[in-house]
Design a protein around this nucleic acid. Sequence first.
RNA 1: GUCCCGUUCGUCUAGAGGCCUAGGACACCAGCCUUUCACGUUGGCAGCACGGGUUCGAAUCCCGUACGGGACGCCA
Length: 465
Amino acid sequence: MSVRTRFAPSPTGYLHIGGARTALFNYLFARRHGGQYLLRIEDTDRARSTPEAVQQILDSLEWLGLSPDEPPVFQSQREPRHAEIAKALLAMGKAYLAYDTPDELAAMRAAAEAEKRPFKYDGSRWIGMEAKDAPSVAPAIRIIAPREGETVVKDLVQGEVRVASTELDDMIILRSDGTPTYLHAVVVDDHDMDITHVIRGDDHLTNTFRQCMVYDAMGWRRPHFAHVPLIHGADGAKLSKRHGAVGALDFREQGFLPEAVCNCLLRLGWGHGDTEIISREDVTKIFDIADVGRAASRMDYAKLSHFNGVWLRAADDARLTREVLERFAKRGVLFGTDGAARVETLMPDLKERAKTLEELAGSAAFAVHEGPPPMEAKAAALLTPEAKERLKDLAVFLTDAPWERKDLEQWLRDYADVKGVKLGSVAQPLRIALTGSTTSPPIDAVLAALGRGEAVTRILAAAEG
RNA sequence: GUCCCGUUCGUCUAGAGGCCUAGGACACCAGCCUUUCACGUUGGCAGCACGGGUUCGAAUCCCGUACGGGACGCCA
């Protein structure tokens, strides 16, 4: 049977990076083994699930390049099937009707706590009861837990984990209102979807033992399990908004590339020798779930920036230009076709200096600015009378300079040589005049991209300003 | 509280008994390169949670302790 994995988020909010990483592992595992990777939306909690959240999860996965191979399955639409299995279990005598009310259950828990003993449900009085003797409350269906021995799970990440049957009790699989519980629905769905490998967050590890009750009672073969550790915030606590960006789409907003986010997420928990930078294509060839670590890791935003810088430099110039222009539009920065062309011309040098698309947009803005760009205070301070004289002189001489980047560089060197000054004392005033900033791509590249007319205009404006 | 899982530089990790004087990456510090800033490059700082075993030999195996996380719902 071919490998089938699934990512099963509940649509109660945005997709956070922990979920994104789980999706990534599911995707990679399936690809590695030539199988399918599916998506199941666990929307059985009607009160908390929203269509907006579903859409956001879909958008997030698409952005990350983790769209499923088949249309998503919506768990809520499968409730009849869940009920059918619950009733089948009842008919087989592997489950029973339990007539406890929520209040009675709460009282039992309170009593257990008062006596400082762990609460364990005992529904033995309901087993074998005739319908006519039952209380007049709507019953829930409980599955009969194993009474002795232990359950053993060979987890692909955590290794062999075992839990004694004394720890398990008869759990509810169908509520008194006829709706399935999560632990039951998951098993039925995974079985029906032919899921062979369940890869999920390690918070589900102990749930696995209860899910095994359903598999075993139905005589279904259990899938392989792999419980990957959670991602924590920089302080080691559970990941939350106060740690900064956690939603997958927040990263897009902040100018991170999906390939960088995936690379970073991959390295949180997965290791393969000293490999740090790795493409989707390459990791697909070597990914092994056994190489995932067992310990929780912390999200490291500084390292994400580094990964992003690496992938930014490797990215296609036309693509980056599109991204930057989109950001200009959002910032209200106006640009014409010549401005767009300047950005693309400068892109090889621009991307070398940025960590995010936001930074890239910031450093590219001077190129499309209508007229002389705004002057940074630090830059303005360096425009001494002496520097302004230099600019006036340059404006004159540049009129005859050859306007190709390579030639411009040589021209500037010759100019500095002839004037007997250091190249820096020529380049820096020029940079300030042309970009309004003390930092920019190499000055010859800037001159070439702006064009002679625009360059001279800016130089004169700065010299006289 | 009970059960389950975990613990290598600040962070992410390599490490499956001798290859470890514990390797790499990010961050940080210093130098080099240089028309600025980056990139690149050289070097530096810094870690096997603790205590017992097993073994000729342990970061690696076993047992405790401590600390962290997770699960204990008619939530998912």
